[in-house]
Amino acid sequence: MKPRLTVVSQKAAPDVRSPILEVRSLTKVFRSAHAPVKVLADIDIAAAAGELICILGPSGCGKSTLLKILSGFIRPSAGEMRLNNRPITRPGPDRCVVFQEDALFPWLTVAENIAFGLRGKMKDRKAARQEVDRFLSLVGLTAYRDYLPREISGGMKQRVALARVLILQPQVLLMDEPFASLDALAREEMQNLLLSLWDQLSHTILFVTHDVVEAATLADRILVMDKNPGHICAEIPVTPDRPRRQDEPGFIRFCRTLHDGLRGGFSERNFPGWP
């Protein structure tokens, strides 16, 4: 029923020298009852416009905290964050988040959820409606526009979550393990959808995941994180064309190296990469 979404065209290689999002020596210390706990230490990230970066790491390495800081929900203890050369201080629609859990408004229909952020931004009612229709069809939910979140599946909810932020045309999309709670089939479908939307709309994406295969499928570049305290231990460029077939020997070999690296710790910051 639903068309399989695959990526046809390829974009030019991103230019990392003029980053749109810049993070410099970001550190976060949580004060607990006993002693301060350092959860993030000296994080440096430079994301080029239109780049898809996966942040890969085991649970507890602070990758979700990093995303919360970038979205402005938590203040960092030290360090600098800049988007388009402007410091990041509070949540805003230029850096939209797709949460891991269901964060749709349960009293609004699919279409109303997608339109939520537009109200107040777009005055023209008719144009806003057309925009909602466009994004409904982009995520393949036109037939479900009047359904409530509790009436649709987990995968569809994440499509709505994606559409309601993409419609705001954010400069950076922050995704916090958005497909982790989906079944394998739905997850693959969502990954394809994300790639196709990314290809059409050219957002910069920071995608947090603990799934090696997901990172290898999506990323232009993988930042590997390790814990105690959370830091980036390796930076791996991933250059093969998309769509990347997951049964290809090169893909499998790359995933295995990533997996072993996650387990044993990456010895050097610059990992060979793929291919």
């Binding site: 402005g72 929900f73 949540p91 939520f116 107040g120 931004k121 705001l168």
Partner: peptide
């Protein structure tokens, strides 16, 4: 759910509208 308020904040909803709309 604080997640709903966070979702509103990241979509650019300020305090007053957040109170009435979320």
């Amino acid at each position: 759910d604080p997640l709903l308020l966070q979702a509103g904040a990241m979509m650019g909803v300020r305090r007053l509208r957040g109170t009435f709309a979320i």
